[in-house]
Amino acid sequence: MKTRMPRAGRRTAYALVLAAALPAASFGGPADDAYIASRDKYVAAIAAIAAAEKAGAGNDAVVKQDERARADLLKQMTALLGPLSFKGLEIKPSFSPGALYDGDLESGRPDGLLFHDTNYETRIFVSPEPVLANWVNHEAENLGLRAGEGLDSALRWDPFYTQATGSDAAFEGYVTLPLTAQDGETLHAVLGLFAQGDIGNVPPDVIVIGRRSGGRVSVGTTPVPEASKLIPICTKVWKDFESKANALFAAVQKGGKGTDDPRWDKANALRDEGATAVRACYTREIVAQPQFAAVRRKAEALLQKMRGN
């Protein structure tokens, strides 16, 4: 995995939404191009309605137009992908993104179909490769990718999985999992964690898999509670950083300056360093833990489900 963006930078990237139409695809077939062109028109129309609302028009038109647009795009996406079903998941998928208008977090997500179980824990997102590549090209900067990096890089990049899995928390990858690809198949599997705030000493407990095959890209995620057992040596790493940070916080409290005290920033920096050290510890240690066998079995089972088996 690549070196991550600073935590604050990642949170900003996740909050950005798709305020403009996607650029014209230069790598898809006629059907993919037609879908993207249709999406562009809808986004432009919704933006125009939103501008009129700000000028004093009614306030329901954007949502209504968004619902109509996404219903039509769902039909087009279903036609592009053809019949799909995954064992144990709901037959009827939801359309991604969850909104096309600026101001909604869901509007930044990639286009595709999102299948899930009844608890919304195991999820599989599927998109035509040209449509998803076009989205990655447009969203590269927001995802933290460098100029020129495309779909292959996105499939190895944590922020992509936050968006593609429909999660409201940021994905943090810990350990790359070994899976055997079939002919013509590209795989990237990671054991990690979805988190909305500081991680601290929290073990990984979820698997994500990116799969590229047959002109489609699919992203799957499933919980693996077996992996969430604390590793004592990693807990010690965290406690060492935490005790130093807490001592500084206590000193700040006594000083009465609050966040203006420079020790406040130093204490928070220690917690961030501790979280990074703990993540590195789990990456190093978990592969030798008894529970790692269960992680690999869960990853293989998810991959088979994504393959339609």
Score class of each variant (00 low, 15 high):
Gly28Thr: 02
Glu129Gly: 03
Asn134Lys: 04
Pro97Asp: 05
Thr259Met: 15
Asn268His: 14
Ala140Leu: 05
Ala57Tyr: 02
Gly258Asn: 13
Ala251Val: 06
Arg156Met: 04
Met77Trp: 07
Cys234Leu: 06
Phe95Pro: 01
Leu230Gly: 01
Ser107Ile: 02
Arg156Ala: 15
Ser26Phe: 00
Ser127Arg: 09
Phe241Gln: 05
Gly200Glu: 07
Leu179Thr: 12
Val62Tyr: 00
Ala48Gly: 09
Phe241Trp: 11
Ala288Val: 05
Phe27His: 12
Asp66Phe: 02
Leu155Val: 09
Leu143His: 03
Glu285Met: 10
Arg70Phe: 02
Glu300Asn: 13
Pro290Asn: 10
Leu89Phe: 02
Pro225His: 01
Gly274Trp: 03
Asp40Val: 05
Ile49Glu: 11
Leu187Trp: 07
Arg11Gln: 14
Ser26Gln: 14
Pro225Phe: 02
Glu226Met: 06
Leu187Tyr: 08
Lys257Gln: 15
Ala288Cys: 04
Arg211Glu: 07
Gly103Lys: 04
Ala55Val: 00
Thr176Pro: 00
Leu80Val: 08
Leu81Gln: 11
Gly103Ile: 03
Pro110Ala: 11
Gly184Val: 08
Tyr14Met: 14
Phe249Met: 14
Gln291Leu: 06
Lys239Asn: 15
Leu248Glu: 12
Pro83Met: 07
Pro93Asn: 10
His116Arg: 15
Val126Ser: 12
Tyr282Val: 11
Phe194Leu: 11
Ala45Ser: 13
Tyr42His: 12
Leu143Ser: 06
Ala277Leu: 04
Pro6Gln: 13
Glu172Lys: 12
Thr180Phe: 03
Val136Met: 07
Gly258Ser: 11
Lys239Trp: 01
Ile124Met: 05
Ala280His: 07
Gly28Tyr: 03
Arg216Met: 08
Leu191Asp: 02
Val252Gly: 10
Arg271Cys: 01
Met77Tyr: 08
Val208Pro: 04
